[in-house]
Amino acid sequence: MAKQEHQNIMDKIASANKSVTTGVDEKDIEHWVTIYIMGDEYKVPADLTIMQAMEFAGFKFTRSCGCRAGFCGACSTVYRLKNDYKLQTDMACQTRVQDGMFLVQIPFAPADKAAYLINEETYQPNIFIKYYPEIARCVSCNTCTKACPQDLQVMDYIQAALRGDFARVAELSFDCIQCGLCAIRCPAEIVHYHVAQLGRRMYSVHGLKKEENVENRVKEIEKGKFNQDFKKFLDMDEQEIKQAYRDQQKSKEVY
């Protein structure tokens, strides 16, 4: 293939991706919606997320923007739709704008985290109450669950923590991105995601058996079991090492 053709392919790819790499150009937009960012009205392209729409409107983020992919919990956003009493919560990077949305981002969730040495704690159900006694104030209103952008059963894991059920806390809270929306909405002032973090670590360290393969392998490495293999490979010339690679790929494990 001609070099020029290769270059043309790269140009085509760059051009198709312009909207996410250099910001949106309004010339390209056919469909618009009106949103209200902290009360001010903005006309924005209908196909954007809240985060992209705020940038289109001229906001440059230093807070409330992290991974932009739904994993870090930085971009908690609360909003109401016109003629709807319901206060909604979501991640700005994972939510499409809707016409008539009134929104604000939450820059920070104030919350105190308990300090503990996980290996020195005993595997007793009362550890949750020891570090986070306020969980006993839970009134089972389920507001935390409704606020969770990950759709986790937040109230259920707080109830599990009250019962001292470590496995259940770990299972139900595992997908928590620690955005803090539960803690901000809770009338009992519980900081759910810190409770969950304590529960998961306790369950892992004290509730699970040590994994044998990795424990054995660490000992084998300490004893120098693989030193000979490494020496062999490090002494090989390029052709020999390529052949070793080919041979190894033949014994590939797939699914």
């Binding site: 670590r201 892992s204 360290v205 994994e211 393969n213 990795v214 660490v218 494990e253």
Partner: peptide, 29 residues
């Protein structure tokens, strides 16, 4: 060479890696 030790370190601090019913790690290619 340090990889298995790093996994052990993470487990000892409380990381929950996926496990099989027999307690061994679920591992994929």
């Amino acid at each position: 060479e340090e990889a298995p030790l790093s996994i052990k370190w993470l487990c000892d601090l409380g990381v929950l890696f996926d496990r099989e019913p027999d307690g061994s790690f679920t591992e994929l290619s």
